[in-house]
Design a protein around this nucleic acid. Sequence first.
DNA 1: TCTGTCTGCGCGCGAGACTT
DNA 2: AAGTCTCGCGCGCAGACAGA
Length: 298
Amino acid sequence: MHQIEFKDLVIFIRIAETGNFHDAAELTFLSQPALSRRMQKLETILGAQLFERTTRKTWLTSVGREFLPKARRMVEDFELSVLGIKDMASQQKGKVTIACIPTAAFYFLPSVINVFNERYPGIRIQILDESANHGLESVIRGDADFGINMAIAQHPEVSFTPLLDDPFVVCLRKDHPLCELEEVSWIDMEPYKLISVGRASGNRILLDKSLARDQVQLNSFYEVQHLSTSLGLVEMGLGISIVPKLAMPLSSASVLTSRPLKGQKIDRSIGLVKRSSTSVSPAADLFINILLEHWSVD
DNA sequence: TCTGTCTGCGCGCGAGACTT
DNA sequence: AAGTCTCGCGCGCAGACAGA
């Protein structure tokens, strides 16, 4: 089955413009017979004659007149698309979409975005601040160019490049009795209500694994969906929480503080997640380069 | 007669099948 | 994996044809 080619449309337009197969052939760098056959092929595919021709004169049929603006639009769209891709390829325009777990978005992105914007002001950035699982799905589906995610969120279709190890800490109000300790053990936490994130969360999976390994059961009293909510409840004095250090507020004015876990170390490895089967867009590649310049683990 | 289009024929190229 | 063969497709050349 033959298909209409881009060149067939260009030829059709040139013949319509010149009213002449011979001149159209010159303009399209073909011999006249080759052009004539191309036109015949196009007419066969369309099942309609586009030109009436005699050996002296060529003119559009009613079908041809109707098809001409459509063909022009198709050629124009195609050319604009190619120009758009060229712009992107030359890295002056485009968009980078990053699926990033929220805590990492705060930590990694601002400095990288600053540098990126200075170097490539024409490229827009979209951040999908999503949970580890949703972020991974966005990368696999192609909704995001790449992701910044936890090592736990891995998949055969993606590659993972570690950027940072983020230890879990105990999040406390500054007036909490446990603040007197330099490090906090599981036993120290037993009397207090624990605020934890939902079981689907990647952070929760890591924490539960450690608790199971050490055969410890904490008083998990409140369950929330987001780390930011658990920080809010700690702030209100409702309990304590075990969170990744990156989730802790940066401001010293905050009523919250943290203490390392005693004896056991729970780390989440955060890194760059990319689809392994396809290459990223030129714009995304530039962003990744700057990200790795800033955060690459040597 | 001149000029433009169509058609027969052969050539070259690329893709896929087949062999070593 | 590399080399060879086959087939289909598009091309140009040359000549036929037709209208002004």
